[in-house]
Amino acid sequence: MSTTRVTRKPRRYGMVIDIDRCTGCGACVIACAAENNLAPAHSKATERTGVTLVRVVTLSSAESPGTGFGQPRMAAYMPLMCMQCEHETPCVSVCPQQAVEVDKLSGIVEQMPQRCLGCRYCMTACPYHARSFNWADPQWPAGMEATLNPAVAPRMRGVVEKCDFCQSRLNAAQDEAAMNGQSDPGAYTPACVEACATNAIVFGDWNDPESPVSQAAASVETFAWLEKLGTQPKVRFHSRQPWIRAMAARGGAAPAKEVAHG
C-alpha cells in the first residue's frame, strides 16, 4: 500500500453578502435550483412546504428597532441561505442520526440526505430557517431531466436538505487541482455567487487573510445576522444602513416576507 498522505489545508469557506447591492432579482435562487437539481415545486407546495436552498427575503424598516417614529420607510432585499454556523452548530447538535456534520477540511456544514430520517428537528433548531423538507419526490416535466446536473444526486421525499456551498463544485475544483499537481483546490465559486448580477455576494476562505471575505470583513459595516446567538455563522452581511444592522442584531419583529421562491 502506498503511504502517500494527502495533506490538505483546512479551509473555512464563507460569504459576505452586501445587502445594499442586492436588488432582489432572484437570480441566485434560480442558479441554485439549476445547480442543485431542485425540481419545480409540487402542486401543493406553499411558501413553507416548497424546497429552496437560498431564498430572498424583504426587509422593511418598519420592522426594525433602529427606525424611530417619523423616519422614512425603507426596504431592502437579502438572500438567505445556510449560514454555515461554526460554533455549537444548532442543526448538528440536535440531529439524532448524525446526518449533519461540520467538515473539518472545508468548514462546510454537510447535510447527508442518505442518513436523514426526516424528523425535521434541525429545521426547528435552525435560527435562520435555512432548511427545507422534501414533502414529495422530486418530479421534472418530461424532457427536463436532460438538464439535470450529473454531479448532484436529487433528494428523495422525506429528507431535509440545505445549502452546502455547492459541494459538487468544490469536488470538481479538487479534481482539477489533482490534475494540476496541487494538493488543494483553494478558490472555487458557488452557483449563486456566479449568478449575482450586482456582485453582492463575495465568497472565499476565512482562514486566508487575503481572501475576498476576509477583506470585506475588515469593514465595521460587516455583521453576522443574529450574532447574539453565538453560532458564529460563516455567512456574513454588509450594509451601510443602521436600521438593517439593528434588525440583524435583534431579529425582525415580524416574519420577513419572501419575494422569490425556488
Binding site: 500500500m1 503511504t3 502517500t4 498522505r5 494527502v6 490538505r8 456534520e101 467538515d103 473539518k104 477540511l105 472545508s106 462546510i108 454537510e110 447527508m112 442518505q114 454531479a151 448532484v152 444526486a153 452546502d164 459541494q167 459538487s168 469536488n171
Partner: peptide
C-alpha cells in the same frame, strides 16, 4: 488506515 479525511460530501453527492 491512511488517516485521510474526506467528510461525508467528499464521496456523497
Amino acid at each position: 488506515g491512511h488517516n485521510v479525511l474526506a467528510g461525508c460530501l467528499g464521496c456523497h453527492q
